[in-house]
């Protein structure tokens, strides 16, 4: 079967500086893929090129067999996106933003049910500005799920959430995965990645230094756990440098 998300040989540079280079990713249906890397390693550029909000210099991208540039309208009926930087109007309430978002899709999910699922039912009439960081983050996940998507992209999934809220979000995501949803996420939290992801990719200065399952990541490193293995992949140079 064809992969749901296919990124092949993706290269993108900004005014001569390479942000990502020759990145290959493929994610199967029902899989959770986690893209890891330090700040500035190229995670957001990869997501943005995959979604077509940035044009790659080189490489092929297909999501659900469609090209994010040419099949935008059709593709984004089936793809939910949560960007790292939240984008909403000042003075807009939770229900207003949800209703407008819902109106953009042909077959949306009921946003009230989603809000309830993510513990935000009480906040319907609240201004988004008044929500706490964690509540906002959960709301943005809800917004990404409103299209009733087959694929979701979640950039910096649980940044700003407390431990309990993170665990709740994990639970929901695993449920979605079990229902066949494909999830592409970036995260800074190794425990989260370990819990959720079937496969991971580690970016370092725009290049993929590891791609595979979590087990493979640990086994092919000199370490016993993912956190150490991740640091070994992502920050090898700094460690080596500090030895001298």
């Amino acid at each position: 079967m064809d992969s749901v998300i296919k990124i092949k040989d993706l290269t993108k540079s900004y005014s001569g500086i390479t942000a990502v280079k020759n990145v290959d990713i493929s994610v199967e249906k029902g899989e959770i893929f986690g893209l890891l890397g330090a700040n500035g390693a190229g995670k957001s550029t990869t997501i943005e090129c995959a979604l077509g909000t940035k044009k790659q210099d080189k490489g092929k991208i297909s999501i659900l067999g469609m090209n994010p540039h040419f099949d935008r309208k059709k593709l984004f009926e089936k793809v939910g996106v949560q960007f790292q930087e939240s984008s909403y109007q000042e003075k807009i309430t939770v229900s207003e933003l949800c209703e407008v978002t819902q109106s953009l899709y042909k077959k949306p999910k009921n946003y009230k049910a989603l809000l309830k699922q993510f513990g935000l039912s009480e906040k319907l009439k609240k201004m988004i500005n008044e929500l706490s960081g964690g509540q906002k983050q959960r709301l943005f996940i809800v917004l990404a799920l409103i299209p009733n998507p087959e694929v979701v992209f979640l950039d910096e999934l649980t940044t700003g959430l407390d431990t309990k809220a993170r665990r709740d979000v994990w639970k929901h995501l695993l449920e979605l995965k079990n229902n066949g949803m494909t999830i592409f996420l970036t995260s800074h939290f190794i425990d989260e990645v370990e819990k959720l992801c079937d496969r991971i990719g580690i970016l370092k200065k725009g290049e993929m230094v590891f791609y595979g399952t979590i087990e493979e990541a640990i086994n092919s490193s000199p370490h016993e756990n993912l956190e150490d293995a991740y640091l070994w992949y992502a920050e090898e140079e700094t460690i080596n440098e500090s030895v001298y």
Binding site: L51, R72, K73, K74, F76, S87, Y88, E90, T101, L104
Partner: peptide, 18 residues
């Protein structure tokens, strides 16, 4: 200018509308 700055315009790029 405000909606571009707040990335609201960009958000619409990843929806079926524009």
């Amino acid at each position: 200018a405000d909606y571009r700055n707040k990335k609201i315009l960009k958000r619409f790029k990843v929806t079926p509308t524009s």
